[in-house]
Every structure is written in C-alpha cells, then in structure tokens.
Amino acid sequence: MVFIYNNMKEISVQELKEKMDNHEDFQLIDVREDFEYEVSNLGGTLIPLGGILIEADKVSRDKPVIVQCRSGKRSAAAIMQLEQLGYTNLYNLTGGILAWANEIDPTINVY
C-alpha cells in the first residue's frame, strides 16, 4: 500500500524488504552523509542531500526510486527538490534506517 503524504508517495520498510526479496527493479538512494552511510546502509547509492540537485543525473527516471535517510525527513526534502526537476517516480522510505533497524534488522547499527 502506498501512502501519499503532502502529495509525496511513501513506502514502508516492510514493502522495501519485499521488493528486495523479490529482486524487483528499483533504485535505492541514500541521502545521508558519508560517515552515516559508513556506520550502516541498506546498499543504496549514496547521494548526500546537499548534492542531490548536482547529482540528479544519477537518479533514475524510468523505474521506481526509493529515497531514504535516517528518519525520513531528509529524504522527503530530497524528493521535494527532485520533483521540481520533473521526477514523478520517487518514494520516501517512511521512518528511514531507524525504522529498518526497529522493524526488519535489529542488528544494524543506528545512531
């Protein structure tokens, strides 16, 4: 089930895990900083929020793109910026990596 929050499409960590388990074709973008990514990550492409517009060419336009951060706030900000460039295929990971650690993998390092 996809929820639209403030006109933004969201996806739960359970739905993300299903997509990963099913080897679905999507792109995962992590908009946290390098040091945060080094602590723990879900294997997504690292594009820190501050560089999202500069590196927008790395974001796919032809498949679903799930954007994640620590809690969901920075990823929402990244989506709002990218939508101004005409992206319509973006989904915010609700709760970010904190929700992943809480609901999917309690062994992942969080901060």
Rank of each mutant, 00 (worst) to 15 (best):
C69D: 14
N6S: 14
S60W: 02
A78V: 02
V65H: 05
L98K: 09
S71D: 05
I47R: 02
V31T: 02
Q27A: 05
N89D: 08
F35Y: 15
N22H: 14
L42S: 09
N7Q: 15
G44M: 04
M8C: 13
Q27T: 10
N102G: 09
A76I: 00
Y91G: 02
E36T: 11
M1G: 14
Y87N: 03
K9I: 08
I104K: 07
Y87D: 05
Y91D: 04
Y91H: 12
M20W: 06
V39H: 12
D21N: 12
G43V: 06
N22E: 15
D105Q: 08
K19F: 11
S60F: 04
I52R: 00
A78H: 01
W100N: 02
N89P: 10
D30G: 03
I4E: 14
K63Y: 10
T94G: 01
K19S: 15
S40D: 13
F35P: 13
Y5E: 14
I11A: 11
I4C: 09
Y5D: 11
I79L: 05
D34M: 06
Q14T: 15
I52N: 00
Y87R: 05
E15G: 10
F35Q: 13
N6M: 13
I104H: 06
V2C: 11
L90T: 00
L90G: 00
V65C: 05
S71C: 05
G96L: 00
S12F: 07
E36Q: 15
